[in-house]
Amino acid sequence: MTTARMREKIAFFVLGLITLLVVIPILMIIFYIVKNSIGSISWEFITQSPRNGMKEGGIFPAIVGTIVLIIGTMLFSLPLGVLSAVYLVEYARDNFFTRLIKLSVVNLSGIPSIVYGLFGFTLFVLFLKLGTSILAGSLTLAIMSLPVIITATKEALESVPLSFREISLSLGATKWQTVRYCVLPYAIPGILTGTVLSLSRAAGETAPILFTVAAFYLPRLPRSLFDQVMALPYHLYVISTQVPNIPVSISFATCFVLIGLVFLMNLVSIILRSHYRKKKLW
């Protein structure tokens, strides 16, 4: 074997090893959580409210709370994010104003989540008088999710071939018809990826919901959009650090449920994506 090929083999081996290093922590985290939660995970744990100072019972209200918050976040951020991206890519001319918007979007994604939390608290909870509520929490999480959704949608729209737009316009379609029928449908996989990614992050965040919606202990389901709810990440924080003598396995079981929820969301997006990818022929 020549030295060049030897070197190549060694390089491949090293690269493979490095790639493996990325996977190992994930596997270890999952293994560790599963191992420690196995004693507490049960049907009751998922379907019942906490009892006896959260030392017993389940985490049902927190699961519902997190799901409600994810849905609320999506309702606000998905239309806003997608339409903003459509405007930026399809309609806006390249000038100082639009460059400013694009720059802000990029910078928004770099802001720490606790800052979003405080912002949401002052704007939605205090100034708009929404109180600590599902509405305020969803809006705060939505603002946090926007940059990722906008960026992903922008990239998805830009990757749709220019010729599709020309075909549509040359047949006499209006600008909006062109966007609606010849651009957006082909951008859906990319939009989906960005949305699920940012919603998964929103599902696991504690800081933005800390002052805007999360309840320390509220063993019933929300009745309106102005109710507080328990949420998995905050509940996890509470039982791990704020309340003494809670079995460790309950914390890990909560972790397990949170990760499972995020995993389910990703699974749905993977299925939808592969469904749309089958139609992609160019």
């Binding site: 010729s163 599709f164 020309e166 075909i167 549509s168 316009l169 040359s170 047949l171 006499g172 379609a173 209006t174 018809q177 029928y181 010849c182 082909y186 139609k279 992609k280 022929l281 160019w282």
Partner: peptide
């Protein structure tokens, strides 16, 4: 309205990634 009345055929065949039927139906539909 102008582009409906003056159609164009591009240099490379530019078809939409949909069925034959829907490629043609697109114009009348819009």
């Amino acid at each position: 309205i102008l582009r409906k009345r003056i159609g164009i055929i591009f240099a490379l065949p530019q078809v939409l990634p949909v069925s034959i039927y829907n490629n043609i139906a697109y114009g009348p539909k819009v």
